[in-house]
């Protein structure tokens, strides 16, 4: 409703620009003033829901706050505590494990799978089969992560779970295990969950990217005697590098943010063997009521994510410049 005067104010102005209109080669542009009005709702929302809370959270990281009495300023105490906190470093170590599971393995395997589907299966066995397989790989990606975690968690059940049953059936009952309940395998199990969830994402992106690869380049390389792996490395990987950047960046951010699977499957346990920063801060907020310290962990996680993003984007830009200089 508030937009009515706005739209009435417009015709006069656009008429002005219409005056420039007939000579588009010279002036050729629309009147651009006043567009900022359209940013108002978006700006108000992002200020209230993102900027204010973010600044507030940073402030809380310098306070002692248990959620009841007002926050008390304690300077850098939380930050000093954080750097000496073994649990915090464990949580980041586990994030690195999740990066292996969600970035490194899926990107490498995804590259090979995408190349297999696109180059070979798509061309020799038909596109339908290739896109069917691609859809199959992508299936776990559509699930809510928490539900995906429950699916695998169900298979890893300790007493009567499917995995232990399979191991027993093939004569490997010695390997039967309480997968999520023992400190030695809990993190590996979570990693397996994440690989399963993540694998389809790079496959789909890389397959689309591969369409840019000129088949003649491949044939030329083949004639020059390059084997499949050489062609793959020097042609495919070079051409789809922008997509590799995007996939690694978005997956790294996702890996640093993992929360749902930890919450549903292990709650960070047993011990701290599967704790991650996001779960750690959540539990400080709502279980230990150490809001100030939880805010410190969350702020540290934010800094890491922003630094990683900036680093990635810088690296990509540099690679692009190097490319265009050639």
């Amino acid at each position: 409703m508030a937009t009515v005067p706005l739209s009435q104010a417009k015709p006069g102005r656009t008429q002005g620009s219409a005056g420039d209109g007939p000579t588009p080669k010279k002036g050729g542009r629309l009147n651009l003033s006043g567009y900022w009005l359209y940013l108002i709702p978006g700006f108000i929302l992002i200020t209230l829901i993102v900027i204010v809370p973010l600044v507030w959270n940073i402030y809380l990281s310098f306070t002692s706050y248990r959620g009841i009495r007002p926050p008390k300023w304690i300077g850098f105490d939380n930050w000093i505590e954080l750097f000496a906190d073994g649990k915090f470093w464990t949580s980041f170590g586990n994030s690195v494990a999740l990066i292996i599971a969600m970035v490194i393995i899926p990107t490498l395997v995804g590259l090979v799978l995408a190349a297999m589907l696109f180059d070979l299966i798509g061309k020799k066995f038909g596109g339908r089969l290739a896109s069917f397989l691609r859809a199959t790989y992508y299936l776990p990606q559509i699930l809510p992560v928490a539900v995906g975690a429950i699916v695998i968690g169900w298979i890893l059940r300790p007493d009567n779970g499917a995995l232990n049953e399979i191991l027993g059936a093939v004569g490997l009952s010695g390997l039967e295990h309480n997968w999520l309940g023992s400190p030695d395998t809990a993190l590996l199990s979570i990693m397996a969950v994440m690989v399963w969830i993540q694998i389809g994402y790079p496959v789909v992106i890389f397959m689309a990217a591969l369409q840019r690869v000129d088949p003649e380049l491949y044939e030329a390389a083949e004639l020059d005697g390059a084997n499949w792996f050489q062609r793959f490395r020097s042609i495919t990987v070079t051409i789809i590098r922008p997509e590799i950047f995007v996939v690694t960046l978005t997956s790294t951010i996702a890996a640093l943010k993992v929360f749902g699977p930890i919450y549903t499957l292990t709650r960070g346990g047993p011990g701290n063997s599967t704790i991650v920063p996001s779960y750690y801060s959540y539990s400080e907020f709502f279980q230990s009521q150490q809001v100030g310290y939880g805010a410190t962990i969350a702020t540290a996680l934010t800094i890491v994510i922003v630094v990683v993003s900036v680093f990635f984007i810088k690296a990509q830009n540099r690679a692009e410049e190097a490319e265009s200089d050639r």
Binding site: L32, G34, Y35, W36, Y38, L39, G42, I46, I49, V50, V52, P53, L54, W56, N57, L60, I253, L256, K257, F259, P277, S278, S281, Y282, F285, V291, G294, A295, I297, A298, T299, L301, T302, I305, V306, S309
Partner: peptide, 29 residues
Amino acid sequence: IGRVKGRTWIVVLFLLANVLPQEALLYPL
């Protein structure tokens, strides 16, 4: 379309909002 001034920074701001971990907004929200 309006190409408002400072649009690159505005886009970066919106992108940042998407990249942030939700934990960093959770308690204040």
